[in-house]
Amino acid sequence: MAKPTDPDPRATLRGGLPDRYLTPDDIAEIFGVPVETVYQWRKKRTGPPGFRIGKHLRYDPADVRAYVTERKSADRNAA
């Protein structure tokens, strides 16, 4: 859970993602969706690609950035 002094994670996405692997909670905050949605994306293979470290799900910031870029390109091409 974000502390009052933590920056808005969505602003972090615009300004550059953190230099650490992201958690499902981080992804939910960045995209402004419930964490359950993040798990559904993974189940349906529609969201940013994640990977497991033991029982923990993590996301590489470079993969998240590539996912956003891909989605933006797809939306522009569809219009």
Score class of each variant (00 low, 15 high):
residue 1 M to L: 11
residue 1 M to Q: 10
residue 2 A to T: 10
residue 4 P to R: 13
residue 4 P to N: 10
residue 5 T to I: 12
residue 5 T to R: 12
residue 6 D to R: 06
residue 7 P to I: 06
residue 10 R to G: 10
residue 10 R to N: 13
residue 10 R to I: 08
residue 10 R to Q: 15
residue 11 A to N: 14
residue 11 A to S: 13
residue 12 T to A: 14
residue 12 T to Q: 15
residue 13 L to P: 04
residue 13 L to Y: 03
residue 14 R to H: 10
residue 14 R to S: 08
residue 14 R to K: 11
residue 14 R to I: 14
residue 15 G to L: 14
residue 17 L to I: 05
residue 17 L to G: 06
residue 18 P to C: 03
residue 18 P to H: 04
residue 19 D to K: 09
residue 19 D to I: 01
residue 19 D to R: 10
residue 20 R to F: 05
residue 20 R to M: 04
residue 20 R to V: 03
residue 21 Y to N: 10
residue 22 L to F: 05
residue 22 L to C: 05
residue 22 L to D: 07
residue 22 L to K: 04
residue 23 T to A: 08
residue 23 T to H: 05
residue 23 T to L: 09
residue 24 P to E: 03
residue 24 P to L: 02
residue 24 P to M: 03
residue 25 D to P: 00
residue 25 D to R: 14
residue 25 D to A: 15
residue 26 D to Q: 06
residue 26 D to E: 04
residue 26 D to T: 05
residue 27 I to F: 01
residue 27 I to Y: 02
residue 28 A to F: 04
residue 28 A to L: 04
residue 29 E to T: 07
residue 29 E to R: 13
residue 29 E to G: 15
residue 30 I to W: 07
residue 30 I to N: 07
residue 32 G to I: 13
residue 32 G to C: 13
residue 32 G to H: 14
residue 33 V to L: 08
residue 33 V to S: 05
residue 34 P to K: 13
residue 34 P to L: 06
residue 35 V to N: 10
residue 36 E to D: 12
residue 36 E to W: 01
residue 37 T to V: 12
residue 37 T to F: 03
residue 38 V to F: 06
residue 38 V to R: 07
residue 38 V to G: 09
residue 40 Q to R: 15
residue 41 W to D: 08
residue 41 W to R: 07
residue 41 W to K: 05
residue 41 W to Y: 08
residue 42 R to C: 00
residue 43 K to H: 11
residue 43 K to I: 02
residue 44 K to C: 02
residue 44 K to P: 00
residue 44 K to A: 11
residue 44 K to D: 14
residue 45 R to A: 12
residue 46 T to L: 09
residue 46 T to P: 00
residue 47 G to R: 01
residue 47 G to A: 01
residue 48 P to G: 01
residue 49 P to N: 00
residue 49 P to I: 00
residue 50 G to F: 01
residue 51 F to I: 02
residue 51 F to A: 09
residue 51 F to Y: 11
residue 51 F to N: 02
residue 51 F to S: 09
residue 52 R to A: 03
residue 52 R to W: 03
residue 53 I to K: 10
residue 54 G to Y: 06
residue 54 G to W: 04
residue 54 G to T: 07
residue 55 K to Y: 02
residue 55 K to M: 01
residue 55 K to R: 13
residue 55 K to S: 09
residue 56 H to G: 01
residue 56 H to T: 12
residue 56 H to Y: 09
residue 56 H to L: 12
residue 57 L to P: 00
residue 58 R to S: 04
residue 59 Y to F: 15
residue 60 D to Q: 09
residue 60 D to C: 04
residue 60 D to E: 11
residue 60 D to I: 03
residue 62 A to E: 14
residue 62 A to V: 11
residue 63 D to N: 06
residue 65 R to C: 09
residue 65 R to T: 15
residue 66 A to I: 04
residue 66 A to T: 12
residue 66 A to F: 05
residue 66 A to C: 04
residue 67 Y to T: 06
residue 67 Y to G: 06
residue 67 Y to P: 08
residue 68 V to L: 13
residue 70 E to K: 14
residue 72 K to Q: 14
residue 72 K to Y: 04
residue 72 K to S: 10
residue 73 S to H: 09
residue 74 A to I: 04
residue 74 A to N: 02
residue 75 D to G: 00
residue 76 R to C: 02
residue 76 R to E: 11
residue 76 R to P: 00
residue 77 N to T: 06
residue 78 A to T: 08
residue 79 A to Q: 11
residue 79 A to I: 07
residue 79 A to D: 10
